[in-house]
């Protein structure tokens, strides 16, 4: 229960950060990428500030044996670069550049009742579920014989 409450509070702080920073405003995000047009460098400062706090904070936190409400830290261990990582990130970038919504930017904006944010999150969530299904099905399928 304590872990659920602490996650809820962390979510509140995250949502406030997204709202205050402008990261949830698609017009601001698209202008950040429009260096040759109506450039708005604000998001550079958002990322720099978020990274500074997280780097220092993680350094202090990860020195401890375990988090407060769990038996261990859940950290990704892979370090290799694979086609899924690069190709997936490229697709994400194209989608992000079309509408200016990323997952962390769009989800808090649901709290404003914005129809565009809702439409984006519904499409994204559907695609996430379908992609997970396809990946799981591909993993279950027997390996195809090599034919040259």
């Amino acid at each position: 229960m304590r872990a659920v409450i602490s996650a809820g509070l962390a979510g509140l702080v995250f949502g406030a950060g997204i709202a205050i920073s402008g990261m949830g405003n698609p017009a601001k995000v698209l202008n950040f990428f429009d260096v040759f047009g109506t450039w708005d460098p604000s998001l550079l400062l958002v990322m720099a500030s978020a990274l500074t706090v997280t780097m220092i904070g993680y350094r202090l936190v990860l020195r401890r044996p375990a988090p407060r409400f769990d038996s261990g830290f859940h950290l990704p261990t892979r370090r290799d670069l694979d086609p899924a990582l690069i190709g997936g990130s490229a697709l994400f970038g194209i989608g992000w550049g079309i509408a200016g919504f990323c997952p962390g930017g769009a989800i808090p904006m649901l709290g404003l009742g914005e129809p565009a944010a809702l439409l984006f999150v519904l499409a994204m969530a559907t695609a996430m579920l379908v992609t997970h299904q396809l990946r799981n099905a591909a993993r279950r399928a027997p390996p195809q014989p090599q034919t040259n």
Binding site: A10, G17, I18, S21, L43, V46, M47, S49, T52, F69
Partner: peptide, 28 residues
């Protein structure tokens, strides 16, 4: 859109604080 350095730095710091809190309490 207007360049908004102060809200950007403040909001970014909150995003960072959230990430640190979720790691410190939930290990996530």
């Amino acid at each position: 859109t207007e360049f908004t350095p102060i809200p950007a730095i403040l909001g970014g710091a909150l995003i960072g604080a959230s990430a640190v809190a979720l790691m410190a309490f939930n290990g996530r």
